[in-house]
Simulated scan of single mutants.
Amino acid sequence: MSFFKKLKEKITMQTDSVTQKFKDGLSKTRNSFSERVNDLVSRYRQVDEEFFEELEEILISADVGVATVLDLIDDLKSEVKRRNIKDPQDVQAVISEKLIDIYESGEEQIGELNMQQNDLTVILFVGVNGVGKTTTIGKIAHKFKQEGKKVVMAAGDTFRAGAIEQLEVWGERVGVDVIKQSAGSDPAAVMYDAVQSAKARKADVLLCDTAGRLQNKVNLMKELEKVKRVIEREIPGAPHEVLLVLDATTGQNALSQAKTFSEATNVTGIVLTKLDGTAKGGIVLAIRNELKLPVKFVGLGEKVDDLQPFDTEQYIYGLFANAVEEETEKEA
């Protein structure tokens, strides 16, 4: 059975609505990246050095990242040689296989949150202003509420008054309590209050917002370290997740932000927002390969349920949906 047919079978085991969200959300990347790959394989009669050079350019333009692309091209060359592939059309499925290999390398659970059983789970959100951090927290609060969990949100971004108000709007919208203090308050004090309130309410999940300024990295690091210390003192082992929120439309800039925040705090996973708004969805692979961090959620649209847990097969299908459908129709 061909790789694309196997991929289609895996996808059909999941809900159609999720598949559609990934397909729609990745349409800009697919129309740019996949169409260029289609054009490439149709123009070449054989798989030669020139073919790989063009493929390299296509991958870099999709923001897969130079280091990742060079590794990928080397792997592809070896695989093409090993399988004795001559027809460029056959390379497309091999590219998909290798992209999945890149993402699924590593021992940690891909995409799964570290949830505490019968105890409070604390999730800390970090990231610069403007990436959709507060909106992400609201959407994840909605997701947990839909699952029947009791959720509390902490307005720890006291540097920006608008962030507190925005989180309160989300709290009202999804029916979740927001613990806050006035703008300019000590974020660590907000976190202390939030932990005590979450415990008193017997909450399942505490979602914590933090300030998003990067201008002074030393201050950012000190603030995040203090916030983490307070949380850990009150709940040993917490925060259970530190999720870095990145804007997919910023491409390689998102990668440099990830490096900075990884230095400042122990980031455990990425939330990639606005993936539907960019043609450079390859950034998912660059993050995974260069930072060894799993993407836990992706933003595939504006609606409250358009923030989806990341799924490798759905992602690859979203990139190659046209080729997958064409091949499975031929084999039908």
Results as ranks from 00 to 15, higher is better:
M1W: 11
F4Y: 09
K5F: 00
K8S: 13
T15Q: 13
S17N: 13
K23V: 07
K23N: 11
L26E: 02
L26W: 10
L26N: 09
S27Y: 05
T29V: 13
R30N: 14
E35H: 14
L40C: 07
V41Y: 06
V41R: 06
S42E: 13
R43L: 12
Q46S: 15
E50N: 10
E57C: 04
I60P: 01
I60K: 07
S61C: 05
S61P: 00
G65P: 10
T68Q: 05
V69R: 02
V69N: 04
V69M: 07
L70K: 04
D74L: 06
D75I: 05
V80L: 02
K81I: 06
N84C: 09
Q92F: 01
A93F: 13
V94K: 13
I95A: 03
S96R: 08
E97D: 09
I100H: 01
I110Y: 04
G111K: 02
N114E: 15
N114D: 14
N118M: 09
D119M: 07
V122C: 06
L124I: 08
V128T: 10
G130D: 15
G130S: 14
K133R: 07
T136M: 06
K139V: 03
K139M: 04
H142G: 05
H142S: 13
K145Y: 01
K145L: 01
K149W: 07
A154I: 04
A155T: 03
A155H: 01
G156N: 04
F159A: 05
F159K: 02
I164N: 03
L167C: 09
V169A: 10
V169Y: 11
E172A: 11
E172L: 11
R173S: 10
V174E: 01
V174F: 10
G175H: 10
V176T: 06
D177E: 14
I179T: 05
S182D: 13
A183F: 08
P187A: 08
P187R: 14
A188W: 08
A188H: 12
V190T: 14
V190K: 01
M191Y: 03
M191Q: 04
D193Y: 00
Q196I: 12
S197H: 12
K199P: 01
A200D: 12
A203N: 10
C208Q: 05
A211K: 01
G212K: 03
R213S: 09
L214Q: 09
K217N: 12
V218I: 12
M221H: 09
E225G: 10
K226D: 15
V227E: 13
K228M: 07
R229H: 08
R229K: 14
R233Q: 14
E234F: 07
I235F: 13
A238W: 00
P239Q: 06
V242T: 15
V242I: 15
A248D: 12
A248K: 00
A254K: 00
L255R: 11
L255W: 08
A258D: 05
A264Y: 03
G269F: 15
I270C: 11
I270P: 11
K274Q: 02
K280V: 07
K280D: 01
G281Q: 04
G282N: 05
G282W: 02
L285D: 02
I287K: 02
E290H: 03
K292H: 15
V295G: 02
L300Y: 04
E302H: 07
D306E: 15
L307I: 08
Q308P: 04
D311H: 15
E313A: 12
Q314T: 12
I316W: 05
V324R: 01
E325Y: 03
T328C: 06
A332V: 14
